[in-house]
Design a protein around this nucleic acid. Structure first.
Lengths: 206, 206
DNA sequence: GGCCCATTGTCTCATTCTGATACAATAATA
DNA sequence: TATTATTGTATCAGAATGAGACAATGGGCC
């Protein structure tokens, strides 16, 4: 952020004649190039005085000197395929490792944590992996993805049992060779079932 | 709503120097008198053209002719203890039966449905009942509350087993007499455990 | 080619959770 | 005292979950 030593989460304005969901799609596309990925609103942040510091040296017209709301959205993308793009008010834009997050401006840390919490929670109800894994992947691949998001290890056997129980995969008749051990079976997502599961959810509640 | 034949959900403006959570608390208090009840943000609505009708006969300054966002909050209150209060731009404000909901302005129907969905979902993770039931209540009372929210009947025995398993109640050594049948046992919420369950959630996820 | 090792697929077992149902307890009433 | 409606509680089968075992397999090594 120009004139600030702190990083911030990427964001942008909502156009006066733009739906907020469309704004999220547009901003994601502008800043990352990503399209048609999982993108969901999770929470709106609207505390006053969100910027603790004295910002009077900045022009009054700048957004974070006025009253504003941040409608939080999070997206799931494959970071290797994404090149972050700087915007007008920033000096840099890049990926950061979640285990080495720098200090962030205003309440962005809190926003990040709310997004993470929502995402972990959603993991129980919505399938993930499409767009995050290659077209063909193995169960250990998928498990690593879940473990990364949850930040903790999962039991192999039980993970596989649970996932396959969801019945959203297409099993291929081939394995991925490589490594001095048994080869894992390759799967793809069954798009029809995957999309259906996204809508109806993986679990019933009551 | 003045000049409109349709009803709307109660709402209000956020002050320029007011946190949105505080605004929700204030508006709830103003319109219902309720304080210190369960009140939670669930979703933000920001489509353009949310009012389908031609509103050009109204002054441009009126809020729903301009661009606006609605940050949705829902509260749980005992409707017998609440008297809805009219605001400046409305002609009436009253309770409606959810099974006989009138047509609502703009996207308020959608907002209502999102709130209901969130609430039903949360039922699995957060205890409810405090402020909605009298200080002392029975398991059948609580079950009726759940059934009302979920809109479907639940099995008696299993409901009781599950609830008591949460261990958030204080069991009293008395029953509520009345009716030609066995008297149900009276319970209260254990405030410490109840509040703890509100924070940590009733279920673990992964 | 035969042996070893790391990882994977799959099975089993015990525990817990859930849905369905049954039955005994109890208060009001006749 | 018998009847009835509702409640408290137990039981049973099935599903879901956590922990662990074991066989299968591909590559490296000799």
């Amino acid at each position: 952020m120009i004139g600030q030593e702190h990083w911030g989460l990427p964001g942008g304005y909502v156009g006066k004649d733009e739906n907020i969901d469309d704004a999220a799609i547009r901003i994601l596309k502008t800043r990352t190039g990503a399209e048609k990925v999982f993108l969901e609103q999770f929470k709106t942040f609207g505390n006053t005085g969100r910027s603790e510091k004295d910002l009077s040296y900045l022009p009054e017209s700048i957004w974070f000197r006025q009253r504003f709301l941040s409608v939080g959205y999070y997206a799931l993308v494959d970071y290797e395929q994404i090149i972050p793009v700087v915007d007008d008010i920033s000096t840099a834009c890049e990926w950061k490792n979640v285990h080495e997050l720098p200090d962030m401006m205003m309440d962005h840390r809190q926003i990040y944590e709310a997004a993470l919490e929502t995402m972990r929670f959603q993991l129980n109800y919505k399938p993930i992996g499409y767009n995050l894994l290659p077209e063909e992947f193995t169960m250990p691949d998928l498990q690593k993805l879940y473990e990364t998001i949850l930040g903790k290890p999962l039991s192999r056997g039980n993970f596989q049992r649970k996932m396959l129980g969801y019945d959203i995969f297409i099993k291929h008749d081939k394995e991925r060779k490589g490594g001095a051990h048994r080869s894992p079976i390759l799967y793809s997502f069954d798009q029809v079932k995957y999309q259906a599961a996204l809508k109806t959810g993986l679990k019933e509640a009551w």
